[in-house]
């Protein structure tokens, strides 16, 4: 009983973040929303492990936190290199004019 309120709040926030991820508008807004959903999932796993009395869910939560962090950093690195390449191309095009 104790846990249902907080689980509802976490799920509702996940939904709000999902709406933000769909609305965008920039790719960074979407990454921010995905990062939020990841944090909420870790908390949800922690709470659910006590709701069902299964402490092994906590290991999943920790693993999820690790994967979420690395994943966000990898995606950001990918978009950063793309932004830098686009900036270099734009500078080249400006030089040719």
């Amino acid at each position: 009983m104790l846990y249902y309120a907080v689980i509802t709040a976490l799920l509702a926030t996940t939904l709000l973040a999902l709406v933000r991820a769909i609305l965008g508008p920039s790719v960074y807004d979407r990454v921010l929303a995905v990062n939020m959903i990841g944090t909420k999932t870790v908390l949800l796993l922690a709470v659910v492990s006590f709701l069902y009395g299964r402490p092994d869910f906590l290991d999943l939560a920790l693993a999820y936190a690790l994967i979420n962090f690395i994943g966000v950093l990898a995606v950001l690195e990918f978009f950063r290199s793309r932004a830098m390449r686009e900036a270099a191309e734009a500078a080249e095009a400006a030089e040719e004019d």
């Binding site: 104790l2 709040a9 996940t14 939904l15 933000r20 807004d29 909420k40």
Partner: peptide, 24 residues
Amino acid sequence: LTTGGVFVFIGGVGALRMPDLYTR
């Protein structure tokens, strides 16, 4: 737990309401 849930939900609402990336 309840205040944590409320704060998390407010943060979610804020991420929807704020006008640009940094404020989000």
